[in-house]
């Protein structure tokens, strides 16, 4: 799909597939075109060219849209004068969803106690939860969430991560956008990275990492270093331990064979964020 707003090329030739049973991260810096892409997917914005479908059906042709695709977009789309329960009742009526489901999603998203208060008085996190409650209303097979973690407290962030993984585990399709890789890297199985309206990476997180590194340490650090060097690995000394290329599994096995008891074995995540920023930065360079 492509979308131009006048002279602004918001999205250019973006093509990707989101698989069921996994959480797919849709990443990119501010203004990369994430929201525009998602709105085109949902029939809210007409693409300049291209199209998007859910299992072969365009959103506007879905027989039961809310029960097929659940959506939470970044904008808080509420009439402040309505209570959360009534807000959901409006769309449950439009989609023919039983009213009993409203209580279920209110409880699920943790705002049942505030459900009869006007949404105008809600905090950002509560609005975000109400947005999720709307997304879950139809118990959909596909979830499209635009920056759902914004404004959530740590408990809320953990809750949504677990929820998304649980939903994907049930075989549902989850697409979640964010402008921070670190925000979603524990949750997502695949990533699509957007920069300046173009896809700069699509694949698993492992692909993204390229040369993966592990931070490893032992009481007997000299023996560990010797074993790693003997395996032909490039070892970098840090305060916390030794940084070596490889996966935790490989390095752990190596240390085990050498008879070295490890005190630390940790995949290096800092590298991931750097790769991400580099990708996004190179995209900017290309578009400029």
């Amino acid at each position: 799909m492509s979308k131009h707003f006048g002279a602004v090329r918001a999205v250019s030739d973006v093509t990707f597939t989101v698989e069921p049973g996994r959480v797919t991260g849709f990443l990119g810096p501010n203004g990369a075109g994430k929201t525009t892409s998602l709105r085109m997917l949902l029939g809210l914005v007409r693409p300049t060219s291209g199209s998007a479908t859910f299992g072969g059906t365009a959103y506007r042709d879905l027989a039961r849209p809310l029960s097929t695709v659940g959506t939470a977009l970044e904008a808080s789309s509420f009439n402040p004068g309505r209570t959360a329960r009534r807000h959901l009742a409006v769309y449950a009526a439009a989609a023919g969803i039983a009213r009993s489901r409203i209580d279920e999603v209110l409880t699920l998203t943790g705002i049942a106690e505030a459900a009869d208060r006007r949404v105008g008085g809600y905090s950002l996190g509560m609005r975000q939860r109400l947005g999720l409650a709307f997304a879950l209303l139809g118990d959909p097979e596909v979830l499209v969430l635009d920056e759902p973690i914004n404004g959530l407290d740590p408990e809320g962030i953990r809750w949504i991560r677990e929820l998304l993984q649980h939903l994907a585990g049930e075989g549902r399709t989850v697409l979640v956008s964010s402008h921070l890789l670190s925000e979603v890297q524990q949750t997502v199985d695949r990533v699509v990275i957007l920069s300046r309206g173009r896809i700069v990476h699509e694949g698993s997180l492992d692909d993204l990492e390229g040369a993966q590194r592990v931070l490893v340490n032992a009481q007997d650090r000299a023996a560990l270093r010797a074993a790693l060097l003997a395996a032909g690995l490039a070892v970098v000394d840090t305060d916390a331990g030794l940084a070596v290329p490889g996966t935790p599994a490989d390095i752990g096995a190596l240390a085990y064979r050498a008879g070295v008891a490890l005190s630390l074995l940790q995949p290096e995540r800092a590298g991931l964020e750097e790769v991400f920023l580099e990708l996004v930065g190179s995209g900017e360079g290309a578009a400029a």
Partner: peptide, 18 residues
């Protein structure tokens, strides 16, 4: 216009894309 103002056209058209 209140639907436009409060951006509730988004959930409205999500629930009824026609």
């Amino acid at each position: 216009t209140s639907e436009v103002r409060y951006q509730t056209l988004t959930p409205t058209f999500l629930a009824q894309p026609r």
